[in-house]
Nucleic acid binder design. Structure first.
Length: 453
RNA sequence: UCCUCAGUAGCUCAAUGGUAGAGCAUUCGGCUGUUAACCGAAGGGUUGUAGGUUCGAGUCCUACCUGAGGAGCCA
């Protein structure tokens, strides 16, 4: 730290041993109208008008404007407040008063202010209340998180994660964590991050699903919820190299069961956010009318019907191909709610997908496409239950058989029809928040060409 | 990996091939109800890097670096 470090500035505060006003969160400030309270936080902004100072405090739960009038406080408190720098940490005491002119509707008549650490004048907080570019903000992500907008996004992310767990817990699912270090590709096709594992190689998981199939046979209904990794060189607003998935898996279940679960699950999550995070959605300027339409049932179309829709809309999409970002947007535009696309060509889907008994060229998979062009938020379906078919598929796709011996065991010892899906948390957060890019949906995004901070 | 666009003051951006500028931020001064406060003044630059064309390059050309958007692949 430099000479300007505020630690050298003497604190102005109450004497020890005195009865101190209670420490309160700014989000609860309305409960303390007329009372003297303590707020612990940071300086968000400071406006001056001669002998009146308007510091705005931030404590992570909200903003509170303080007012410091020269004639109402000690000369020390006035001088200290006037010299506060943005994001200096502090403890303030004062009386709460309703005032429509202040942000949040309440204001504090500051009587005492204690500086915890002053941001040095010669090294000011880099993120000002003005505009900044994406590169600059991403470079200062560790500080950008203090902004109101990022605070709102990550609070909504928290609500979404909690809603996922609350819903599945309520339906009798057991959370069983799956490993992050794995010996081989789960699906064989996409690129994995490779790492050293003592004298061996290991890979960072791209899905907990195969392990959840094992735990589903142990518990009946399970889910895993953790980070997953894709070493794809994707460079779009929908991709991260490290992202979080929640993956429920059910024994004795079919594609139909997975689709029913998916629509109820997504509806529960959206409604929970609407109920509990109205303020945050407002901060983001999200038009919630589209979210309010999300309710069971979701429209269902087969892959064949999806191809027809695309062709009707002027696309030259051919049966057998996989949907790109533009195709997904075209499809989702057709429906006000998330849409479930099912029964894809076997060739474009993973090796473990159960074929449709009446049409072996398609598999019992389902993708859920979010509205408003947010793309695929869920992918899943029914898994192959037959031992011989699974073995054949592993061979056909040239997967390392030795790595899948335990997975094949699941079809050997009491195999049952089972199904599940994975939901990408960041895309759901981006959709519900109405964001342009998934990079703001996680505190520290990992992307192609970005690992810092 | 490929395609497109961009890089100028701490930040956001201007500048016909001809003297490098503004707003914000910072510092100093003014203001008792400010809301990205406002008003006045000051400091602040090897124009991403390296070459090239030209009397002269921020501007034109080449390569590289960094970033953004998209494609492919995917949640």
């Amino acid at each position: 730290m430099t000479e300007g470090n505020g630690a050298a500035i003497p604190a102005v505060g109450p004497e020890e041993g005195k009865d101190l006003p209670p420490v309160v969160s700014i989000e609860n400030i309305s409960r303390f109208e007329g009372q003297e309270v303590t707020v612990q936080g940071w300086l968000y902004n400071l406006r001056q008008s001669g002998k009146l100072l308007f510091p705005i405090f931030r404590d992570g739960t909200g903003l509170l404007q303080g007012i410091v009038a020269k004639k109402a406080v000690s000369p020390e408190v006035f001088a200290l407040t006037r010299e506060l720098t943005q994001e200096s940490s502090l403890i303030v005491r004062g009386t709460v008063r309703a005032d429509s002119r202040a942000v949040g509707g309440y204001e504090m008549d500051v009587t005492q202010l204690e500086l915890v650490q002053g941001v040095p004048v010669e090294e000011p907080f880099p993120i000002t209340p003005k505009e900044h570019g994406v590169e600059f903000l991403m470079h200062h992500r560790h500080l950008w998180l203090r902004s109101q907008r990022q605070n709102a996004i990550l609070r909504i992310r928290h609500e979404i994660s909690k809603a996922c767990r609350d819903y599945l817990d309520g339906e009798g699912f057991i959370l069983v964590d799956t490993p992050i270090l794995t010996p081989a590709a789960c699906e064989g096709t996409t690129t994995l991050f490779e790492t050293q594992y003592f004298d061996d190689k290991a890979f960072l998981t791209q899905s907990g699903q195969l392990y959840s199939e094992a735990t589903a046979a142990a518990f009946g209904k399970v889910y895993c919820f953790g980070p997953t990794f894709r070493a794809e060189k994707s460079k779009t607003r929908r991709h991260l190299t490290e992202f979080w998935m929640v993956e429920p898996e059910m024994a004795f279940a079919t594609l139909e069961d997975a689709m029913k679960l998916a629509e109820r699950f997504v509806t529960f999550v959206v409604q929970r956010v609407l109920a509990n995070r109205k303020r945050e959605l407002e901060t983001l300027g999200r038009d919630v009318s589209r979210l309010e339409q999300v309710e069971v049932p979701f429209p269902r179309i087969s892959y064949d019907e999806a191809v027809e829709i695309l062709r009707r809309k002027g696309s030259d999409f051919e049966w057998g191909g996989d949907f790109g970002g533009t195709d997904e947007t075209l499809l989702s535009e057709e429906f006000p709610k998330p849409v479930m696309v099912h029964r894809f060509p076997a060739a474009i889907k993973a090796f473990y997908m159960e074929p449709d008994a009446s049409r072996p060229e398609v598999v019992l998979g389902v993708d859920v496409l979010a509205p408003e062009g947010y793309g695929e938020i869920i992918g899943g379906g029914q898994r192959i239950a037959d031992r011989n078919l699974l073995h054949r598929r592993i061979q056909e796709q040239n997967l390392p058989e030795a790595s899948f011996d335990w997975y094949e065991d699941l079809r050997k010892y009491g195999s049952v029809p089972h199904a599940g899906f994975g939901m990408g948390i960041e895309r759901v957060v981006a959709w519900i928040c109405g964001l342009e890019h998934v990079r703001e949906t996680i505190a520290f995004p990992r992307m192609l060409h970005r690992m810092r901070p």
